[in-house]
Simulated assay, not measured.
Amino acid sequence: MPSRSIPSIRPADTKTRLLDAAEAQYIDSGYEAMSLRHITARANANLAAVNYHFGGKDALIHAMLTRRLDGLNRNRLVLLERFQSMHGAQLTCEHILGAMFIPALQQSRCPERSGPALLRLLGRAYTDPSPFIRAYLRTMYTDVAERFFCAFQSVLPHLPREELGWRLHFCIGSLSGILAGADTNSLIDDFTQGRRLEDPQLIGRLALIMVAALKAPQAVTREMCPFQSMFAECNAAPIDTKETQPALA
């Protein structure tokens, strides 16, 4: 009986190493600070390999983001549609937020699919001011964003589109900033003093804040805004910005 050869475990191919290196570099420093020199050194590859597999830096970054975000957003839409079908008119903000965050958390728990780095990648992508990244997200995921926006409109019909847009922008932007700038697991350990926090409880805490913001009373008019008088008082007595004493360390 012929012996069966055991396949050897080969290191990741050059294309995968470049994608992994670009992802790590992007999470660390953002798009504008990335360089092909650092990426290729991290991937143990050369510039010719980038041009061969991708055609250049922008195409490499595009491929790096797409491999993580395409599948994630498909899963988000599947879960959103499932909740809409199951709950109909009883759909809530919590269901929509669950459809946004549950797939991301599940994927972040899977080492083969980037693991914990996914959350920081999401945070970096949604807070990166680079025109290239902003254009990429608008072009690739406008439909996904609109589907979720319409879902929020269905459960918050009293909010004008502009007002809802601002609230979602603030909520998601704040969360993305936290994900991009810190290790979420370390924060959880600090806040819970080492006690285990299950994913449903974690999403529950996020939803508690975000739902409160989304359901807050309508923004006050210009005449009623308390900050209007504060700015008037500030302008009436300009603050002296000259240093009259040593700055505090």
Rank of each mutant, 00 (worst) to 15 (best):
P2Y: 14
S5N: 14
P7D: 10
S8D: 12
R10K: 15
A12C: 10
T14E: 08
L18I: 03
S29E: 15
Y31S: 12
Y31D: 12
R37I: 09
I39H: 11
T40L: 00
A41R: 02
A43H: 00
V50W: 05
H53A: 07
F54T: 04
A59Q: 08
H62Q: 05
A63R: 08
M64I: 02
M64Q: 04
R74K: 04
L79W: 03
L79K: 10
R82H: 11
F83R: 02
Q84W: 01
M86A: 09
H87E: 07
A89L: 05
L91G: 03
C93V: 07
C93H: 02
E94N: 07
I96K: 12
G98F: 06
G98V: 03
I102M: 11
I102L: 15
A104N: 06
L105Y: 12
Q107Y: 10
E112A: 15
R113A: 13
R113E: 14
R113T: 15
S114C: 06
R120W: 01
R124H: 02
Y126F: 13
T127D: 00
P129Y: 12
I133M: 10
R138T: 11
T139Q: 15
T139F: 15
Y141K: 11
D143C: 07
A145V: 13
C150S: 14
A151S: 02
Q153K: 15
S154Y: 06
L156S: 11
H158V: 08
P160S: 12
R161Q: 14
R161M: 14
R161T: 12
E163N: 07
E163G: 12
G165E: 11
L175F: 10
G177W: 06
I178V: 07
I178S: 07
I178Y: 13
T184E: 08
L187G: 04
I188D: 01
I188W: 04
D189A: 00
D189I: 00
D189W: 02
D190R: 09
F191Y: 08
R195T: 05
G204Q: 00
I209F: 11
M210D: 08
V211M: 11
L214P: 00
L214S: 01
A216D: 11
A219N: 13
A219G: 13
T221Y: 12
M224P: 04
M224S: 10
M224L: 12
P226T: 08
F227Q: 08
F231C: 06
F231V: 05
E233H: 03
E233R: 05
D240H: 04
D240I: 02
A247R: 15
L248D: 14
A249E: 15
